[in-house]
Each structure stands twice: as structure tokens, then as C-alpha cells.
């Protein structure tokens, strides 16, 4: 299928304005939205599922889901970028659960670490320069202790519940909850100085 590039006019619209058009099934507006966010969506999907084909599948499902549900989008409740990324995350975690958890969560911690290398081990200095938000997130994660980062990554990027993490790491559930709370509070304090924990 030959696809003509979307008009400049559409490309200058905000996400909220694009979503209003997408809600009326404007395919061109959707294409602009897609082009604007697919790289981030794909990076997130890949971060979670760890390989190309599932990441493609996750992104396809997520973008089509947004296309078909755009009329339900309310800009007052959150921005569209967060919305598509949250949908991608959900689909990616669903994929992980389907693929890797049919044996009652037997995925070894080591295997997880292999599948999801910790951000601090990645050479992303140039990435941080090119992608301010992602770089900021990386820096945020580096604000955390190893223990805090571990429980946050296992939950957010691998989809494990706190009780599963408790079992996996052989830690009391209260410890896992506390690490999550403290880690997120620390990140929030960096992002929004002045907020109270």
C-alpha cells in the first residue's frame, strides 16, 4: 500500500488535537500520531518483551487499540503519549505473562536479568543526549539504590506482583512494598521537588 505523507498541517497539531480527529476516524491524523510516538512505543515494548517480533506485535495491537478507542480518550485525564505508552506496557506485560508464565512463574531471576539488562549496564550516554525524557528516566533510576531499582524493574518492566517479587527475592512482603514506596518517592522528589512522600 502506498502511503502519502501526512500534511504539514496535521504534523503541526498537538496530540490532543490529533486525537480529536482520530476519534472521527481520520486515518491521516492517526498516521501523524503513530509517527510521533512509535519509536518510544517500540523501545518500551522491546524493553519489556526483549525481542523484535513480539515488540512489533505489541505495538501493532496497542496502536490499533488506540485507533479504535480514540473517542473514549479524555485529554483532561492524561496526555495521549502517556496513554499509548501505558497501553504498550500493558500489552507487553500481557505478552510476557502468556509466553513465560504458563508454569506458575518459574522464570528464574537470572533469566530475567538476561532478558532485561539493567539500565545502568547499558551504554546510553549518547541516547541520553538525544532523548531527554528517556535520559531523565535513566538518571532517575540511577538515583535509586540497587534494591529499590530491582523491585521497581521487576514490577514495572517484567509485570511481577509484589508478592511474586517477595517470593523470587526471598524477602518479606513488607520489605518489597517499602522498597517500592521509597524508590518511587525518591524518583518523585527528583521530578517534582517539594512533593511530600
Amino acid at each position: 500500500m502506498q502511503m502519502a505523507p501526512p500534511s504539514d498541517h496535521l504534523s503541526s497539531l498537538s496530540d490532543a488535537a490529533l486525537m480529536q480527529r482520530v476519534a472521527k476516524m481520520d486515518a491521516e491524523a492517526f498516521e501523524v500520531f503513530y509517527d510521533r510516538h512509535v519509536s518510544s512505543a517500540y523501545a518500551l515494548a522491546y524493553r519489556i518483551v526483549g525481542s523484535r517480533q513480539p515488540a512489533d506485535d505489541v505495538c501493532q495491537e496497542a496502536f490499533l487499540s488506540v485507533w479504535r478507542s480514540a473517542a473514549r480518550y479524555d485529554a483532561n485525564l492524561g496526555n495521549a503519549r502517556s496513554w499509548i505508552l501505558a497501553v504498550v506496557r500493558n500489552r507487553a506485560i500481557d505478552h510476557l505473562r502468556r509466553v513465560t508464565r504458563t508454569k506458575e512463574r518459574e522464570v528464574a531471576d537470572e533469566a530475567l536479568a538476561e532478558r532485561h539488562p539493567a539500565p545502568q549496564d547499558q551504554n546510553t550516554e549518547s541516547t541520553a543526549l538525544r532523548n531527554a525524557q528517556a535520559g531523565e528516566t535513566r538518571e532517575l533510576m540511577n538515583e535509586l539504590s540497587d534494591d529499590q531499582r530491582r523491585v521497581i524493574e521487576l514490577s514495572f518492566y517484567s509485570g511481577y506482583s509484589h508478592s511474586e517479587i517477595s517470593e523470587m527475592l526471598e524477602l518479606p512482603l513488607g520489605t518489597v512494598k517499602a522498597r517500592m514506596n521509597r524508590g518511587l518517592a525518591r524518583m518523585r522528589n527528583v521530578l517534582s521537588p517539594g512533593e511530600t512522600a
Binding site: Y42, L44, D56, F63, S82, L85, Q122, R130, T137, L184
Partner: peptide
């Protein structure tokens, strides 16, 4: 914080959307 966690680096080696993804969508 949740929104920040959703942002991961987009230019890691070889981590780009497949060429067929946009076409199929």
C-alpha cells in the same frame, strides 16, 4: 513517576520498529 518510567531510550542499537509495522498498522 509512572510517566517517566514509560520513557525508555529510543536509540539503542537495532531497537527500531520493523519496516512492516507501520504498513500493517
Amino acid at each position: 513517576v509512572h510517566d517517566a518510567l514509560l520513557e525508555v531510550p529510543t536509540t539503542l542499537d537495532d531497537v527500531t520498529p520493523g519496516v512492516d509495522l507501520k504498513r500493517s498498522v
